[in-house]
């Protein structure tokens, strides 16, 4: 039973098993399915770990850190939103292995949700982009900040949540991981900081490609997000913020 934790390396993806999730996201035909996948995939991994109650060998920690760093680095040049999101997801979920070494499984489920909720929302927003512009690709059109201000605002805030900025839950998860590793292994803590930096860098690059730029190519388009949809997305984001603040209680 103890060796069953190996199944988790697919759901809390570690390289090369991470390819399964990235391929799945590529294959799923619509945004809702992708959103559900982003939401449930890591929870399955955490559930498996809970079921096995395994004592993990130390080298898993380095494997997880390596995977996270690899995908965060590779995300730097990704301009397609769903692919970028799947890379960041792999990078973030690998960190849950690091959290695991300093936290109990109840917290791990919370932390997993903290990472996945913004990703699921981002997947839905990716669908909104595809629906309007046939692709969610940075640098292809740009300038939607002016033509679609409401959609842009939601994209910006959700992306900030994905790259673990305060007060979103990812921020506290990263804090918790770094806290857990600081004394045991400063190298891992520094690695986590590097990963965090790479997320920010790639996230801003993607954002600039999608949202910023002159609106010439899009002038005349008036299909911005409906107010009720913005309200729904905003409420979800606020909910995530409150959820994030509740994480601070863990400290």
């Amino acid at each position: 039973m103890n060796q069953m934790w190996w199944f988790s390396v697919v759901f809390l993806p570690l390289f090369p098993f991470s390819a399964v999730f990235v391929l799945l996201i590529k294959m799923l035909p619509n945004a809702w399915l992708r959103g559900i996948a982003f939401l449930l995939w890591p929870l399955a991994g955490v559930w498996l770990l809970e079921a096995t109650q395994a004592n993990l060998p130390d080298w898993v920690l380095y494997w997880a850190l390596g995977t996270s760093l690899l995908y965060a680095f590779r995300a730097l040049v990704i301009r397609e939103l769903n692919l970028w999101l799947s890379y960041i997801a792999v990078s973030a979920w690998s960190i849950l292995w690091v959290v695991l070494s300093g936290s109990d499984l109840t917290n791990l489920m919370l932390f997993a949700l903290g990472f996945t909720l913004p990703m699921a929302l981002m997947a839905l927003l990716g669908g909104e982009l595809k629906q309007r512009f046939t692709a969610a690709y940075g640098g292809l059109y740009g300038g939607i900040a002016q033509s679609h201000p409401r959609l842009s605002a939601m994209l910006v805030f959700t992306l900030l949540a994905v790259i673990a900025t305060p007060l979103f839950p990812g921020f506290f998860t990263m804090m918790s991981s770094i806290m857990a590793q600081m004394l045991n292994s400063p190298v891992i803590a520094i690695g986590l900081l590097l990963i965090w930096l790479l997320w920010s860098w790639s996230g801003i690059l993607l954002l600039q490609g999608l949202v910023m730029g002159p609106e010439d190519a899009l002038s005349g388009l008036t299909d911005d997000l409906a107010v009720w949809r913005v309200g729904t997305y905003a409420l979800l984001l606020i909910g995530m913020g409150i959820f994030g603040l509740s994480f601070a209680v863990v400290f």
Partner: peptide, 22 residues
């Protein structure tokens, strides 16, 4: 973006400092 990246470079050591002090 340069500003953002530089600020992130500066933000993260403060996290480490907080971790060390705590």
């Amino acid at each position: 973006m340069w500003t953002m990246i530089t600020y992130r470079l500066g933000d993260l050591p403060l996290v480490l400092a907080a971790a060390v002090l705590f």
